[in-house]
Amino acid sequence: MLNYIWASFILIGIIYALVAGNIEGLTTAALDSAAEAVGLCVRMLGIMSMWTGMMRIAEESGLIKALSKALQPALGKLFPGLMKHGAEGGRAMEHISTNVIANILGLGWAATPPGIKAMEELQAINPDKSTASREMCMFLIVNLSSLQLVSINIIAYRAQYASVNPQEIIGPGILATLVSTGVGIIFAKIMEKKVFK
């Protein structure tokens, strides 16, 4: 998909510029943008490395594990059927809470492995192997509703473009994230009642 999007940006740009007579600025625009990407990454190197460094401490100290344990009772409300499935259900719950904590902390790279593990455990107790189970639907809708509390990369980009207060969007971001996740959960619960009777 990205192949086509990328190609169409360039092709539409060149053809439109030819037709509209804007072709003279195109070369400079391409060169400047490419150079700008590098400048941006230099700043990102600092901010991202700082963040992943701190998060590594949280991992090694067991903080992330402790947080996902604390989260499990709350998650039990979202997946009421899961604990009836014994060991597999329990393992699925562990992976789900690790995934949710990693997402909340904005660790996309750390969230994907437990997320896939959770899907595998859920698939093991899924009666129909080609159709998403009730738990899978809930898990993915919550996952895709955005859970991140601090978008460190957005803050880094804002800093790069000389924002006076790059972190000012954290509070509003949390508020908007609560709305999106809340709406996702309500929708999933309503659909559960309709589909799984």
Partner: peptide
């Protein structure tokens, strides 16, 4: 951990160059 973040950012650099270049072109074209 910081080393890992370093590698991640370096890994996205080529993607970013490609995308910003394409966006630069389509924006300059009008």
């Amino acid at each position: 951990g910081a080393k890992e973040g370093f590698t991640t950012v370096l890994g996205i650099l080529p993607t970013l160059i490609g995308l910003m270049m394409a966006i630069g072109i389509i924006r300059a074209s009008g």
